[in-house]
Amino acid sequence: MEERMNSKDVQIHINHVGMTFKDNKGNDMEALKDINLDIKKGEFISLLGPSGCGKTTLLRIIADLLKPTKGSVRIDGMMPREIRMQQKFGIVFQSPVLLDWRTVRKNIELPLEIMHYDAQRLPERSAEMLKLVGLEEFANHYPKQLSGGMQQRVGIARALGIEPELLLMDEPFSALDEFTKEKLHVDMLDIWEKTNKTIIFVTHNIQEAVFLSNRICVLSPHPGRLSAVVDVDLPKKRTLDIRDTLHFSELVAKVRNSFEGGSL
């Protein structure tokens, strides 16, 4: 499976990426095999697949949290490491990973402090981010005083605060209840529209992937490989009721059928 496009639009170029881990018995475990994928600037890409398909591994390779054993990734023509050193990655983890002793505002300011952002403009910047995720009133709360959904929103605000080139999200909503998740899905689309960031979103939920993304990369396990790329031709502005349309169900079915062997 290859997904190639006109090279001038491409922001992320994933070229023959393979990843082999050693398990505890010393045997080779092929987590990813020959992944080829081009991602355009401003896309909302979902990496979708069952557990063990290597979707998180792929995200971590893009984020320079892992080095691939084969192939390479180029982002704007640079190595992931260079992009990371320039502090151009915004990562949202599965758990919010907030610092308990910092207020919501101070948590959002953490990466800005690391990159020596102008201290005088710091409060203004964090206020802007708080507004984006709708947590203005909670600026001086501590993470433990917030619900799981709010904590994850702080994580998103923190990731966006540094104006990243790329927003990488690793199953950010999987631990949340259905209602909170829906709310955050709508928020996410809103944020995508407002900021126009390239977003790579890892998930194992087909509906979530269809609702959020403009392209879905379907990964299959053992070894993890790209088995299909599905374009989601829904309008960019989406509301929750779009999930009740026939077209949405057709897309979900199409994605489901694209898993190798037809089903999971």
Partner: peptide, 23 residues
């Protein structure tokens, strides 16, 4: 995860100590 967070922002070791480990 906290180390990875700091790593992803290319935080120098000194900051990992002052901003995460010591608090």
């Amino acid at each position: 995860e906290k180390y990875e967070l700091m790593y992803s922002y290319a935080a120098p070791k000194r900051m990992i100590y002052t901003k995460v480990l010591i608090p």
